[in-house]
């Protein structure tokens, strides 16, 4: 798993590449938490290059979205496809997370 962090205005975008499993999910959770200190708590997780996640990855996302919303912001997903989309569906996460077709759409969703 590789993570990248970039800032689009007041929205923080975390790109996740590769696989999030039981041995890497904590790193994702820590990275999301680290971006929250002193920011607007508006986050996008870019899943365009995310090939795989287990429930450990969902746990990291859930921790992130809970904290963002507690601070008045949100954590939204972009470019979810394939098996990752299926795991989100099976877990009921597509009903609690807002998902956009790409990063631009997810970032601009905060403006409206």
């Amino acid at each position: 798993m590789e993570l990248s962090v970039s800032q689009h205005g007041d929205v923080c975008v975390v790109g996740v590449r590769g696989s999030v499993d039981g041995s890497t999910a904590m790193q994702l959770q820590d990275t999301v938490a680290a971006q929250l200190t002193g920011s607007a708590a508006r986050m996008v997780v870019d899943c365009a290059e995310l090939e795989y996640t287990s429930s450990a990855g969902l746990r990291a996302l859930l921790a992130g979205v809970k904290e963002c919303r507690r601070q008045g912001g949100d954590l939204r997903l972009a470019a979810v496809s394939g098996g990752v989309r299926r795991v989100l569906d099976l877990s009921g996460f597509t009903g609690i997370l807002r998902i956009y077709s790409d990063v631009d759409a997810a970032v601009s969703s905060y403006a409206s």
């Binding site: 429930s55 969902l58 746990r59 859930l62 809970k66 919303r69 877990s91 009921g92 609690i96």
Partner: peptide
């Protein structure tokens, strides 16, 4: 798990 729970109540 309760797949319909809200974010606040959601357990993984």
């Amino acid at each position: 798990p309760d797949l319909l729970a809200s974010v606040e109540d959601r357990q993984v």
